[in-house]
Design a protein around this nucleic acid. Structure first.
Length: 156
DNA sequence: GCCAACGTTGGC
DNA sequence: GCCAACGTTGGC
């Protein structure tokens, strides 16, 4: 099993929204970055787990845990001229952008804030904490996963 | 609201 | 292929 971190702005879509969604599941659409696309398309597998991170929020931090329930498939929102993430260059015959489906597993008892993550030993090399890191879909090591789950008080 | 860092675009 | 300009991300 592999581990990941997914960023979302809670004003747009929060972890609580995922908990309320039908089957607690949603399409992780709208990613328009090639490195993140490669992860979605090539690396994520059904059964993988991901932290759900609230960015551009007050405070920012990890809100919950979700599970990949469908591996990469074309992001159809790229073909919709009315969609905010429309990309006229993405060809339905050879899609540029991909998405996965994720299902909420559990909310953390309380938000694990960015400040707390920064102060936690063993997370120094976490992608999220690197200077200038903006990746919205990023890998988490098994070690980092275990440290964070322990800190948050949820089973790893 | 500010601004640093990053990714993309497009002229050459 | 280089690189300046631009738009976006995201913490503060």
């Amino acid at each position: 099993m592999n581990f990941w971190l997914l960023k979302s702005e809670p004003e747009v879509f929060a972890f609580a929204d995922l908990m309320r969604a039908p089957k607690r599941t949603t399409h992780w659409d709208g990613v328009r970055n090639y490195q993140a696309r490669n992860t979605l398309r090539d690396l994520m597998r059904v059964g993988d787990r991901a932290f759900f991170y609230h960015s551009s929020a007050d405070p920012t931090g990890i809100a919950g845990i979700c599970e990949i329930v469908k591996s990469g498939y074309p992001d159809h929102t790229a073909f919709d001229p009315k969609d905010d993430h429309f990309d006229p260059k993405s060809d339905p015959a050879a899609p540029t952008w991909y998405m996965v489906d994720v299902r909420a597993v559990v909310a953390l008892p309380q938000l694990l804030t960015l400040a707390e993550l920064k102060a936690t030993k063993g997370l120094e090399k976490m992608v999220l904490l690197q200077r200038g890191s903006r990746l919205s879909v990023q890998p988490v090591t098994a070690k980092e996963w275990a440290i964070i789950c322990k800190k948050a008080g949820v089973p790893a």
